[in-house]
Design a binder for these strands. Sequence first.
DNA 1: ACGGGGAAAGTTGTCTGACAAATACTACTG
DNA 2: CAGTAGTATTTGTCAGACAACTTTCCCCGT
Lengths: 248, 248
Amino acid sequence: MKTRARPRSVSVRDELTDRIDRGLLTAGTRLPSEPALATELGVSRATLREALRTLEGEGLVRRMWGSGTYVAQGPRVANSLDVNFGVTDAIRAAGMQAGTEQARYWFEPASAGEAAQLKLQPGQDVLVVERVRTADGKPVVLSRDILPARLLAHHPEVADRMLQRSMYEVLEQELGVVIHHGIATFRPVRADITVARMLGIPRGELLLAIWQVDYAEDDVAVVSSHEYHLAEAFDFTVLRRGPGRRLQ
Amino acid sequence: MKTRARPRSVSVRDELTDRIDRGLLTAGTRLPSEPALATELGVSRATLREALRTLEGEGLVRRMWGSGTYVAQGPRVANSLDVNFGVTDAIRAAGMQAGTEQARYWFEPASAGEAAQLKLQPGQDVLVVERVRTADGKPVVLSRDILPARLLAHHPEVADRMLQRSMYEVLEQELGVVIHHGIATFRPVRADITVARMLGIPRGELLLAIWQVDYAEDDVAVVSSHEYHLAEAFDFTVLRRGPGRRLQ
DNA sequence: ACGGGGAAAGTTGTCTGACAAATACTACTG
DNA sequence: CAGTAGTATTTGTCAGACAACTTTCCCCGT
C-alpha cells in the first residue's frame, strides 16, 4: 500500500544486479572505481560499498584490495534446487511447459508428524493439496502440499486457485504470505503402487522423494510438501559455496 | 608463511560468527548497538558494518532500521549439501566415523567429457582417485575424483596422501589450491554390477549419483567428482533461499 | 636492447564525526 | 484506560581523509 521506504543501498544493489543481468556489465570486466561509481549513481561511497558487499556475498562481483571490483564470471545455474522454488520453476527452467493433472484438495486433521513440522496442535485442521504435475504434458511429479487451514480461514475459495497455479504465487498474491526460506531433504526411493498408478509408471520405478518445509520471514512454518519426482525427468543441481567458510 | 594480511572486517565477521556458533549470542537476542559493538571490538563503526552486512547476507543476523540488529533464529542444517563439501564432512555431520577402503589412484589421458569439464585438451593426463568411503566401518559411498595431473607435476607424492585424507584438505594444505565453489548435479540410479561389487550390495540397489565440478577462486576447474551414495546411508538437505530474490 | 628496481598513480580498506530516518519508549492528556 | 505527542535510541547515509595494497610505468644499471 504505502511506498515501502527501503534503504537506498538496496536500490543501488538492484540497479547493479540489473546491469549485470542485462549484460551491460559482462563477466570479468572491472567496475568503475568506488568514488566514480558512487557519484554516477548519486550516492555516497559508504552506501555504494554496502551494496557492493551484498553483491559480493551473492557471488556476483569480486573485490580485490588495491586492484578493483570485477564482475564475477560466476556460475548461473538453470535448475538450481537452492533457488528455484517449487515444481513450476523447475519445469520451466528445464525449458518445458508446466501443467497440472488430477488436482484435488481436502481438509483433514493434522497427523502427529505434520503437526510437529508446522508447529500446530495435533488434530488442528490442515489443507492438503494433491497434484500431478506435467512437463510438456507428461506426468513427472506427484506433489502433496500441506498447510494450516487457518491461513485461509477468511478466504476458503483460495484453495481452488491453488489447484492450477503455483502455490507460492497464490500464497503471496492472495494471502500476503511471503516464503522466506525452506529446508528440503531428499533421497532416492522406489515407486509404491499408489504413486506409480498416479504417475502412470510401473511399480518400483526410480523416484527422487523431496520432503520440504517452507518458512515465512518470522520463521513461522507455512507449508510442508512431499514430492515424488521421476528420476529421468530432470536433473537437480546445487551450487555449493565454500568449503570452509563456516565449518568449525 | 607470511602473515596473511586479511581485512579487519573479516576478522570481525569471524569473531561474531564464533560467538553465535558457541551460543554466546543466542537466537533472537539483540546485539549491542553499532557504536557500542564497534568500540568493544576495537574497530570503527564502518568496519563493523561491513562485517554485519556479510553476516546478514549469510542469514546469521537480521538488521532492522531504527530498532537494532538481531541474531536470526535461522536454520542450522547438519548435512547441508550446499555447505558440507565432500563425503568426509557429510559422514561426520551425521555423527559417524569416516573411513576409507579400497583406495587407489592412477594416471590416464582425459576422456573427451572430462577434458571439457576441466577445460583441458583431450588426451592430457588426469589423476583419478577412486575410494570406497565408510561410515562406522560400513561402505556407503563410492567416489572417483578426477583432477588435472599438472596440479601435482612437482609434487607427485601428494597423490598418496589423497587416498586417506579429505581431498579438499590435501589440495589446500599441500598444493595451496583453495576450492571456492562447486556445482553438483544428482539423480537416483540403480547400482550396476561394478558399483554393487565395490560397495558390497546387490545389483540394482538404490543409489544417489552425484556428479560435481569444483572451481578455484579464479573459476579454474580443479576437480571433477563422481559419487555413488547408498540411498539409506544418510539424507541430504538443502537450504533454499528465496524464492524471488533474483529470479528474472 | 633488455631486465630489474622503485617511485607514482590508482583502488579498496579503514577511520572519524556528523546528520537523517525509522523505531521504541515514556510521559502526558483526554 | 486509550491515544498521542515528544524524546531517546538505533540503523542508514553522508563527507572527507588517510592507510594498505596493487598495478603501471619510468628510470637506471647491465
